[in-house]
């Protein structure tokens, strides 16, 4: 799932200055599941923005709505954007892009898109995939070194590992975990496999092939 988080209100208010009627649009897929873009957050953000706007002596009318998925043109086409002069998207970057492309109305992001993550419990996700386009999880016991190792090292832990912790101190060392899991699965020999430098063009190629609308990052 794409994990997202709300921007600071100041930044959003700044984007919306001068707008008359703004549609706050949630996304009931990843953003809702990430507890940042469902109906509840749309309603909460409308209230927060109303407070923010009125304290600045401005007037902007806010209306709320939710699409099942902002990143699908059919859902966007079915949306009612009558008399709306800006959309504040509570979706990921793909949602913002799709809304902007389909509606012709200025679209602003209310969220920052963080990573592709897996749930760790209530309101907690861990980055598990960086959409690099050339997956090595088969050799790394399902633990992504590109994502989970701070340096994206493909061949084992750096010298910064500290009792199994990353030198950044904010996560366990991915390579220690990979080593442990490979050993526990009797696949210790996999560790010796030398991974060549990554093909950084791989992700782009897929994007290009599938949509013919991508481009280099």
């Amino acid at each position: 799932m794409v994990v997202v988080t709300a921007k600071q209100l100041d930044e959003i208010v700044h984007m919306l200055a001068g707008r008359r009627r703004v549609l706050l649009l949630g996304c009931n897929t990843c953003a809702a599941v990430a507890l940042a873009g469902g109906d509840r957050e749309v309603e909460t953000m409308i209230q927060a923005l109303q407070l923010a706007i009125s304290r600045r002596g401005m007037t902007v009318e806010f209306v709320g709505g939710v699409l099942q998925r902002q990143c699908e043109p059919e859902y966007v086409e079915a949306m009612d954007a009558e008399d709306i002069d800006a959309i504040l998207s509570l979706g990921c970057g793909a949602g913002v892009a799709m809304l902007a492309a389909q509606t012709g109305i200025p679209v602003y992001p209310a969220l920052d898109t963080l990573f592709i993550g897996a749930a760790q419990g209530l309101g907690s996700w861990r980055a598990e995939c960086s959409a690099c386009g050339s997956c090595v999880l088969g050799e790394t016991a399902g633990i992504c070194p590109v994502t989970r190792c701070a340096k994206g090292i493909l061949n084992g832990p750096c010298g910064g590992v500290n009792d199994g912790e990353c030198e950044l101190g904010d996560r366990p060392c991915a390579w220690v975990e990979i080593h442990e899991r490979l050993e526990s699965q009797g696949r210790g020999a996999s560790f010796a496999h030398e991974n060549p430098p990554k093909d950084d063009s791989a992700g782009e190629m897929y994007q290009w092939d599938l949509s013919a609308k991508g481009g280099s990052r």
Partner: peptide, 15 residues
């Protein structure tokens, strides 16, 4: 209280 989609409700209470 936590449902992000406001898909849940309790009888007799609402926003």
């Amino acid at each position: 209280s936590q449902c992000p989609a406001l898909a849940l409700s309790l009888e007799g209470t609402s926003e």
